[in-house]
């Protein structure tokens, strides 16, 4: 494998890791506050549709992004009402949200665009284009550093850089602010937060809302940056891979970055079987690569390689004592 192939591979790794990273951080906020969220997939899908649909109708991708975030927030609110206010089963609510998004996106897409459940292809201002970072063209011919900067670091859409920036931001918010301390506490021991006079319900709604915003950006990235338009079921299990990455990362922001990059690399390798063959000298089945994130998560969950301990109050509705 030559240097340029490696750069190309890492470049597509970054592209594929971005939606996973955003969704993984989304899940991190929610689960750290004690709300399990297996509805990441559905929220991404809804956001992917609404951002593509609104972007294609208005011609402005930023309006599309807002619409995507709005759709994802609406589903988050539903999850919040079901699991916080009515103390329902968070897992079942997540399952319902996934199906709701899968069904509604096709239904609305068919009703609005009549193209068999897809949106028209996005062009020009209705899409996030790659940004050429300053100096990329000038440096492109410099050996070694040139391609690294021009091909790998430069040339992505703004959402990729936003996702990367979200990692230190999440870390700072969770570990260096009062809000973060309370958010983590509410996922471990909500009664203590309640005793301190801080609203458990308020904190959990805040966490679920942040989760909605991040999932919204992740979905918008899928349909307006990674691809040019919405197609049926385009999230294709990414919400579940993000969930797997979250466990792999043991609910920590920096680990989430590495886990999603690793899973992104698997995705990138899936499309380049020739690269694997030249590196390890044997053929690897693409199905095996596709299943690898899930297998690794099961192994991690089983505690054979390090132990992943979820937030203690995760999944349990909080009942105030009377």
């Amino acid at each position: 494998m030559d240097y340029l192939t490696l750069i190309q591979l890492l470049d597509s790794t970054l592209r594929l890791a971005t939606p996973l990273l955003l969704a993984c951080l989304a899940g991190l906020f929610s689960e750290r506050a004690g709300i399990f969220d297996i509805g990441l997939e559905g929220k991404m899908l809804a956001a992917a549709f609404f951002s593509a649909a609104v972007a294609s109708l208005t011609g402005n991708v930023w309006v599309g992004l807002l619409a995507g975030i709005g759709a994802s927030l609406a589903l988050s609110a539903l999850h919040g009402v079901a699991s916080i206010t009515f103390r329902g089963n968070q897992l079942i609510s997540g399952v319902a949200i996934n199906f709701l998004a899968a069904g509604m996106t096709v239904l609305i897409a068919q009703s609005w665009f009549k193209q068999g459940g897809r949106t028209p292809s996005l062009m020009g201002g209705a899409r996030f284009e790659g940004i050429t970072l300053p100096g990329a063209e000038a440096l492109a011919d410099v050996p070694f550093i040139g391609p690294l900067y021009a091909e790998l670091i430069s040339g992505h859409s703004i959402l990729v850089y936003m996702a990367l920036a979200a990692v230190p931001l999440t870390w700072w918010l969770l570990y260096r602010t009062r809000f973060g301390l309370r958010l983590r506490a509410v996922g471990e021991n909500p009664a203590s937060v309640d005793t301190a006079g801080v609203s458990v319900v308020g904190l959990r709604y805040a966490a679920v809302a942040i989760c909605g915003v991040l999932c919204g950006i992740a979905g918008a990235y899928l349909s307006t940056a990674l691809q040019a338009g919405f197609v049926k079921d385009m999230s294709a299990g990414r919400g579940f891979i993000a969930l797997a990455a979250l466990i792999f990362a043991k609910w920590r922001p920096w680990y989430a970055l590495w886990a999603t990059l690793l899973f992104g690399l698997f995705g990138a390798l899936e499309t380049r079987p020739d690269v694997i063959e030249s590196v390890i000298g044997m053929k690897v089945q693409s199905q095996f690569l596709g299943a690898l994130p899930y297998i690794m998560t099961v192994v991690i969950l089983a505690g054979f390689v390090g132990k992943a301990i979820p937030p203690r109050a995760g999944g349990e509705p909080y009942v105030k004592e009377r």
Binding site: L78, V81, A82, S83, F86, R87, G88, N89, Q90, I92, S93, V95, A96, I97, N98, F99, L100, A102, G103, M104, V106, L107, Q110, K114, G117
Partner: peptide
């Protein structure tokens, strides 16, 4: 009709939502 098959997926989601997650909303 022009109603896609996905309508059933929506109905299925609503049934899961109301009989499962929002059970307390009906019950309380």
């Amino acid at each position: 009709t022009s109603i896609p098959r996905e309508l059933i997926v929506v109905i299925q989601a609503l049934v899961i939502l109301f009989t499962g997650a929002l059970d307390n909303m009906v019950r309380m």
